[in-house]
Design a protein around this nucleic acid. Structure first.
Lengths: 227, 227
DNA sequence: TTTTGCCGACCGACGAGTCGGTCAATTTTT
DNA sequence: AAAAATTGACCGACTCGTCGGTCGGCAAAA
């Protein structure tokens, strides 16, 4: 191993340490209440050192989010690759997402702050990172949806729109679970959701009445791939 | 009209003015970046006067949220009362929600900040207000769901859980729409959601295979009324 | 000796909340 | 009716702790 590499690794390790401390402190106090000094103290390094690795607090915040999203994407992708049968693949993805949400529940308020920050910030990196992550997950979802359609499990709903819808729904359920003080099982909520979406709520008779209307919507979707 | 009443009205009017200014400034800059001075300037009053009506910035923030939620609840309730037919009532509620979301889109980041704030704050008022609002809407949803069931439009899914699920989904779709930069029609997204949830995605054959599993979940639900 | 990484004292902007004072309207006194 | 006294809503200059970011110097490595 070259000296160069060794030095790079040391640098990466320290950077990692700072990000981990930042996650801890941000998670505990929130972005605004968390002081750089707190993060430095927790990492047992000097405040100045933090600024050797990140030039602003915002940048550090972005790094924290990046780390989570990388991890989430990696877990979801790995989970998808472990299955060929689309039905079990879909189940596995949902399971993985729930696991991730549950282990990161304490950081939910950071997620909210991050989104709020992204919506307001001049710096487009924040929003870009969010959208990039969504795109990756949506691709995964779209692929699974198409597979489910090809084995005749799902009707020919617009796969792109459906996978986007799923992303929104997932976030919504997670958020609600957090705001409800985790008063119920997140897994139960997801299972319930899955059943509703899979089987639908209409009675057979009513479904027949509504069939034209719903078919149109399901085919049309709402989301178009941006050019 | 007594002098007393007149004075109270003047006070209420000024309070209202401050809250309105706060909405404007908070919406523009976010909770942390918004200065009390900004709000006072916008209302054309002195900074000290703001503190005659609200003893802390937090209290003012809560008042802003309160005003929105009162308005939202009122609109939803009014909307529900205008229909007796449950199918059109459900449509009307969704329409009203979309209208509200669309007109308040610019304040989405405040909503996120508020939630983050609520999750972290020592003061339980924030979370309580959120839950109170959710409860009101969930009751409305539950009622409509039961009506839909009584006219044999919906299967006998657990109405309490389903209305909760709907709340989570609604927020999720709204949030995603915002984060996606309002790149599509919110109404289309809701219509799509409605069709998916109504008709379900499974093919008839697959539905038959899964029927036992889904039935169990739909019946059981995930949300129990707290005692 | 030079370079690199590290450090924490220091700075200065900043903003929430305070408080002594003003003034216009109302009430009381003359 | 005029003058005096009282009230309280309103104000903004000020205080004071805070914290992101800087920088000069130190120590270890090269």
């Amino acid at each position: 191993m070259s000296k160069q590499q060794e030095s790079n690794e040391r640098r990466d390790a320290k950077r990692e340490l700072i990000v981990k401390s930042a996650i801890h402190i941000f998670g505990q106090k929130g972005f605004h209440a968390a002081k750089i000094q707190d993060i430095a103290d927790f990492a047992s390094i000097g405040k100045g050192t933090v600024y050797e690795y990140f030039s602003t607090k915002d940048e550090l915040f972005l790094a924290v989010y990046d780390k989570w999203m990388d991890e989430f994407e990696a877990q979801m992708t790995a989970s998808a690759e472990q299955h060929t049968n689309p039905v079990s693949k879909a189940d596995a993805l949902i399971d993985t997402a729930i696991d991730f949400y549950e282990t990161h529940a304490q950081y939910a308020s950071i997620l909210l702050e991050f989104w709020a920050h992204a919506l307001r910030s001049e710096d487009t990196h924040f929003l870009e990172r969010i959208r990039e992550m969504k795109q990756t997950l949506a691709n995964l979802g779209e692929q699974v949806t198409r597979q489910l359609q090809s084995v005749k499990a799902f009707t020919d709903v617009d796969a792109v729109s459906f996978s986007r819808l799923e992303l929104g729904i997932s976030d919504g359920i997670f958020l609600q679970w957090i705001l409800d003080g985790k008063a119920y099982s997140l897994r139960d909520a997801y299972k319930f959701r899955q059943s509703v979406i899979g089987a639908g709520l209409m009675t057979p008779a009513f479904r027949k009445v509504m069939s034209l209307k719903t078919k149109k919507h399901l085919k049309k979707g709402f989301w178009k791939r941006p050019e």
